[in-house]
Nucleic acid binder design. Structure first.
Lengths: 148, 148
DNA sequence: GTAAATAGTCAAGCTGCTTGACCACATGGA
DNA sequence: TCCATGTGGTCAAGCAGCTTGACTATTTAC
């Protein structure tokens, strides 16, 4: 594959990612969840399955644990999560979503569906599913980092 | 399309975008261009076709013109671009890439090709081209914004 | 039982962005 | 032609989110 083709692919991918992030964020805010940043959404997806420690969250977001701790401070203060004692490790604390945190997560899913709708209208549902499948196959396992 | 499917698509897209940005950046640095950030790359693509004013660059990056001006300061100081008087508007200044700026742009294209190579090995060239074509069709025209 | 590793926080500093103020030049109407 | 308004650009100050460094409490390993 030529360099220029790879660059066009990259540019398109990053443009779509930027647009998507912005639309999801706007949709979440429009549903009444203010003071929440896109990075919080990525934290929520890590906390959702049953909570996580600050260190686990830091690894998932690709930041220092101090930064993750500050982020947790913020979402706790805003009522989206709470810190509980960790069962089995008295040093650690388990960060779990509150009911409001779950509401916000569901709002983000709705906003994502809304953001993707124009793609379905343009490409058709099967094409979008194919897009998803291909992206899932090349998606990395490592930490989720901001695009830039 | 279900909300959960849209969310999976979004998560995969953003994960791939983050990984891609990081790999291109690493590739550019590995080719000897230090002190350059991913945002600079997006500036370069706007400057490349024949230069741009600070205001045009700000619109392209989706930031204030003050921020764009600071970014131009930086890439000028590092030797990637220079400010010239604007032909036809004495208020404006045309920011153009230097030879080193062009070298860096070509390095970014090489790095992009390198980052995309694993996808070609995994999905095959025609599938990756199809991916590119679909992304190009849903890519927005507006400013390029960081994914988060 | 003690030394090293790990979870978490506090504090200070830096970087890249923002808002606000301002000057130089351009544009359009009397 | 002259002036009022709009636009391109920069300077300055402030802020948000991250970093590094230092420290305590607890766990793990020998």
């Amino acid at each position: 594959m030529q360099n220029s083709e790879a660059m066009a692919l990259s540019a398109a991918l990053l443009a779509v990612a930027g647009e998507l992030t912005q639309r999801i964020h706007e949709g979440v805010v429009a549903r009444g969840f203010e003071g929440v940043r896109p990075a919080h959404g990525f934290a929520f997806t890590r906390l959702a399955p049953g909570g996580a420690t600050v260190t686990e969250l830091a690894a998932h977001l690709g930041v220092t644990k101090q930064a993750a701790s500050q982020l947790v401070d913020e979402i706790v203060r805003k009522g989206y999560a709470e810190r509980r004692p960790h069962p089995g490790d008295a040093r650690a604390r388990l960060v779990v979503l509150t009911e409001r945190g779950w509401d916000c997560t569901r709002a983000a899913e709705e906003a994502a569906a809304e953001a993707v709708r124009p793609w379905v209208e343009l490409l058709g549902e099967s094409e979008v599913r194919a897009l998803r499948d291909r992206l899932l196959r090349i998606a990395p396992y490592g930490p989720i980092r901001p695009a830039w």
